[in-house]
Design a protein around this nucleic acid. Structure first.
Lengths: 195, 195
DNA sequence: TGCCCGGTGGCACTGGGTGCCACTAGCGTC
DNA sequence: GACGCTAGTGGCACCCAGTGCCACCGGGCA
């Protein structure tokens, strides 16, 4: 294989795989596309595909770990006077603040993740990291043990809010930030009218 | 195969598979146990295993569909004067009201589902049915479209509460009903102290 | 007896994922 | 220039989940 100047050759093939995967998965079903086909489309071997992505599903997620790290940093840097829920909402909005040019890509990606059963299932594993980070933030702010009810519950409930916001964003026309704020607002007010 | 008097022979083998699977998965890891091993332990062939359960993971869940149906009926039969969140909480408590003798089994099952990554992932698919049922209930009660923000959000958030309640129940000593009420209470009050 | 039918077992096949080995290109060292 | 090192790759064999197909076997029924 030709190594194109510098050590970012690996990053380049990774990006090529990612693009090929997203294109194929969007054009057809996720399940009917085999790893071989993605590898072919990306111009690499099946074995190499699984060296870059542990799972077929992982190719859809891009560098999600970087997002989690960023979310963690954002949460750690929030104003202690800001209400906890508001700080989580702000961090979610910030970490999902994509440039306009990247929005179509994000739409494709999220549509896949929220629609395809296999990817829906896989998302649970990825979101576990998010939950851990948020629960630790809540624990820091409240002094509670991070394994106790409130930190865990806030983490899973806010993630539920974020996921639902993504769903409404996909089907609607508003901005993602608006939808996130709307969902968090409902959550923080304890669903007014339903109590 | 010997057909043991009546048409419930199928149900009997299904129960045998389920017991063998739970026992093996609890004793070792879920992933390291092969479908062949479960089939052997249950005294049937691998092919028959997959006739009773579409997935290795499904053997852990028992007849979950019946639970969803029951939850749906409970929600449909709730008092219209009762607050919506309270009606969902009550339905969750009711559908998880196990006899004391069945609690150890439930603990094993839930520990597996909440601990093993593969089962965590699979749970997302099963819980999608629960979310649909709850969202429809909220839509009925509020008059909102069942695909709009509030019904969806209430469904995912209450499920998050229920899941978290199961986690605290597993690690603590309280009753499941208590933990469910505690989680729903936090949720319905919008997390007092965090706003 | 002949027929249907539900449950079963065996077998071959696809596809995801892994371990192992061999090859190559780049790079520094003597 | 020969040497070794390393990162990235390809190929191959293998394991395992899940499926389609066919053959068998038992019980009920005309």
């Amino acid at each position: 294989m030709v190594t194109e100047a510098g050590g970012d050759a690996r990053e380049a093939t990774r990006a090529r795989i990612e693009a090929a995967a997203l294109e194929l998965f969007t054009r057809r079903d996720f399940e009917t596309v085999t790893a071989d086909e993605v590898a072919d489309a990306a111009g690499i071997s099946r074995r190499t595909f699984f060296r870059h992505f542990a799972t077929k599903a992982d190719a859809v997620w891009g560098d999600f770990h970087a997002h989690v790290v960023r979310l963690d940093e954002l949460l750690a840097g929030t104003d202690p006077d800001q209400p906890v829920l508001a700080s989580i909402c702000a961090a979610y909005v910030e970490v999902n603040d994509y440039a306009a040019a990247d929005l179509p890509l994000l739409r494709h990606r999220m549509r896949l993740i929220l629609t395809e059963p296999a990817l829906q299932a896989h998302s649970q594993v990825r979101y576990a990291d998010v939950d851990r980070v948020v629960a630790e933030h809540v624990a820091r702010r409240t002094g509670a043990d991070r394994h106790s009810l409130v930190p865990r519950l806030v983490a899973t409930a806010t993630r539920a809010a974020a996921t639902t916001a993504f769903e409404t964003w996909l089907t609607g026309e508003g901005s993602l930030a608006e939808d996130l704020h709307a969902a968090f607002d409902q959550l923080a007010r304890g669903f007014p009218g339903l109590r």
